Simulated scan of single mutants.
Amino acid sequence: MTQLALDKPTLRPARDLLTTSPLETALVVGYALLLFAAPLGLLVATLELAPQAWPLAIPLLLLAAYGLFLQGILGHEGFHFNLSDNRLNSCLLAVLLSSMLAGFCVTGYFVDHWQHHRYNGSPKDPDWRLLRRYRLALSRLLVSRLHATAWYLLQTVRLALPRANVSGTLPLPDRQIRLLARANLACQVLWPTLWLLLAAKWPLLLPAIAGCLLLALLISALNAYQEHAFEASVVMPVARSRTARLSTWLHLGSNYHLEHHLYPRVPCWRLPRLHRQLVASGWYEGRQALLEPHFFGALRYCKARFPYAGAWQAMPPRGNHGQ
């Protein structure tokens, strides 16, 4: 067994890495929406004018799918309170944007995700319990995310009920979580209604969005294993950072997932800067196993020989890295 020494870095992020910025939030949201809408609109317009141009569909759909996937990333960031100084506003924006992913309810995800940070990689980690059961690449890609999405939806429905109680320690009062759950379910109706209205004018829009959703589902499923699947010989790794520039563009910086676990209050688009500071400090020396420098090289972590979170065995707690 290989046990990595994962003591928390002594590096303290500068205040500008931690402070929310309305301008940055607007730019980041705009970037994610543009990455989704521009290739999708170009595809629909092109196929309406020239149906024989269908070979353009795959690359344009893939780009749009990454833009749609980023709405889920923004949902994650909003519930880490990185989109606004006001926690509730950050979460409401997260709900609105992430609901573009049909069926994905970020409120139910948030309840599990907070425990994921607290118990990362151990049997108390909800993600460990859910994702470790899938070993083959096909089941990881096609089943794991459907399972997780259905679970988050059920959790959100439960949380939306009057007097619903939330298990575990969370940074929001129950009444706000109930409000967010209800807003989440409303937005799950809002976005499909908007697509149907737009499809009355552009009929090709619906199959194009369906294709984007399918690809975004696959991207999201693969992403979980790229972040947390390690060789079976590695004991309790925290997470992996993927450092390819293409990963940063397509993942909005969330590809630096180890940095996120170490400093979850740093917005994902600032994680590349934090990573460079950690490298300069020497913290990564001897920890290269936690880095993946190649965009396509990261695809291999979907294979069975990389179990979710490596090997787990009873060990002294690493300490809480904060939420």
Rank of each mutant, 00 (worst) to 15 (best):
S21H: 04
L27P: 01
L34F: 10
L35S: 04
G41A: 14
G41E: 08
L42E: 00
A45I: 04
L47D: 02
A50P: 00
L56Q: 00
L61N: 01
L63D: 05
L68F: 09
H76C: 04
N89D: 11
L92A: 15
L96E: 00
S98F: 03
S99D: 05
A102C: 12
A102S: 10
F104W: 15
V106N: 12
V111Q: 15
W114A: 10
W114V: 14
Q115A: 12
R132G: 05
R135I: 03
S139I: 02
R140G: 04
L141T: 04
V143W: 10
T149D: 05
T156G: 03
N165V: 15
L170R: 12
R178A: 10
A186S: 13
V189E: 08
W202F: 11
L215W: 01
A216I: 07
N223H: 11
Q226M: 12
F230G: 08
V238P: 00
R240H: 03
R242T: 11
T243V: 06
R245M: 14
T248Q: 15
L250K: 08
H251A: 14
L252K: 03
N255H: 02
Y256P: 01
W269C: 08
L271K: 03
R273P: 00
S281L: 02
Q288E: 15
F295A: 07
F296W: 15
P307D: 14
P307V: 12
Y308Q: 08
A309S: 15
G319C: 06
